[in-house]
């Protein structure tokens, strides 16, 4: 009973910390949906997969979100027709490579500037590599959850930028039989709410009412409610799992996994995934282990935690199918381990 109550307190503390960040991410996603012309956005992004992944990794500077807020934004980017490399680069790098987190890390590790620099550089590198790897999959849709895949603009052979109109099959199906979120316009026509078709909606129905601020605010509100409901529930389930594991598995067990050069890196990566604290504050937490663990293992904690944690895996599953999440998880873990091990051997 005691343990249950402790676990519940842990669960609440994770949520009290994460919900505001999720809200921030949902609001950013709404802004992206309404005020950014995705056709322009997609055309402005570099087409080269490697460069695209790199640019995607830097979008965190525009949308400073942590690992709870990045999911709604990344999902929005994907449904806006942004290339996979860009979206995945963003998903993995944004929680680390953004001004707030860099500032927090700097505050915590002022005495070891190399940790701050390497955290940013290595996170960028890993996110770019994984984004690049995923860009070899020309059509990302088999890896996505059905609803996200359906909301994506269909790639056509002659790609007009990265964005295209509905495919002929889709056009032949009455609008309401297609999947997606629909609004009924003033003229009684069904309009798909998903971002991919937003420019198209401008040509349907009365243009004036659709463009009005009121309409946009209504859409913004509706989008926020839906994302909050859906991702909030996922976050609750994820936090419950993270809290259960924290109560059930002694932290000493994780820490005693290793004090050796290799095992300490693994121990800190496991700890990062289990503790599931937000990237904006994890550097302070890592600092408390500074005297007991090697700099390389702290670095592993700081790089791996924001990319993958128990609380966030559920959120990732709202974009990707389980298979793709496993790929991302495995790649991120291996690259983090490899890079921090090299750092360990050099210093």
């Amino acid at each position: 009973m005691n343990q249950l109550h402790n676990g519940f307190t842990l669960f609440l503390s994770l949520l009290v910390e994460a919900l505001p960040f999720l809200l921030l991410g949902v609001l950013f996603s709404g802004l992206l949906l309404l005020f950014v012309d995705e056709r322009k956005l997609a055309n402005a992004l570099p087409r080269h997969p490697l460069l695209g992944a790199f640019v995607g990794s830097l979008i965190g500077f525009l949308f400073p979100v942590c690992e709870c807020g990045n999911v709604p934004v990344a999902r929005r980017l994907i449904t806006q027709g942004v290339p996979a490399s860009v979206a995945i680069g963003f998903l993995l790098a944004a929680p680390t490579v953004n001004p707030i987190v860099i500032w927090a890390t700097w505050t915590a590790f002022r005495d070891q500037p190399e940790i701050v620099v390497l955290r940013v550089v290595l996170s960028l590198a890993i996110a770019t590599i994984i984004g690049w790897v995923f860009s070899t999959q020309a059509d990302l849709r088999p890896l996505l959850q059905t609803s996200v895949a359906n909301a994506m603009p269909t790639p056509t052979k002659k790609r007009q930028g990265f964005w295209s109109q509905m495919s002929p099959q889709e056009e032949s199906v009455p609008a309401l039989l297609q999947s997606g979120t629909f609004l009924i316009s003033g003229s009684g026509q069904a309009i798909r709410m998903d971002a991919a078709t937003l420019p198209m909606t401008a040509s349907v129905g009365t243009t004036k009412s659709l463009k009005s601020i009121k309409y946009r605010l209504g859409l913004f509100l509706e989008n926020s409610v839906q994302e909050l409901r859906e991702l909030g529930a996922v976050l609750i389930v994820g936090s419950a799992i993270a809290a259960t594991i924290q109560v059930a598995v002694p932290r000493e067990l994780i820490l005693s996994l290793g004090q050796g050069p290799i095992t300490s890196i693994i121990a800190m990566m496991v700890l990062a995934a289990v503790v599931s604290i937000c990237s904006t504050v994890d550097s302070f937490f890592a600092l408390s282990f500074a005297t007991a663990f090697t700099p390389a293992s702290l670095l592993a904690f700081l790089i791996f935690g924001p990319m993958i944690d128990l609380k966030g895996i559920g959120l990732m599953l709202s974009i990707f199918k389980g298979r793709a999440v496993i790929y991302i998880f495995a790649l991120a873990a291996q690259l983090t381990f490899l890079f921090t091990l090299i750092y360990q051997m050099i210093y």
Partner: peptide
Amino acid sequence: YIPPQSEQHITLFPPGVSSIILITA
């Protein structure tokens, strides 16, 4: 006011279930 219809927007849980998880917690 016609509430926007949210079929298929949901990925992991059906719509009612998500709300019920939120409310229960």
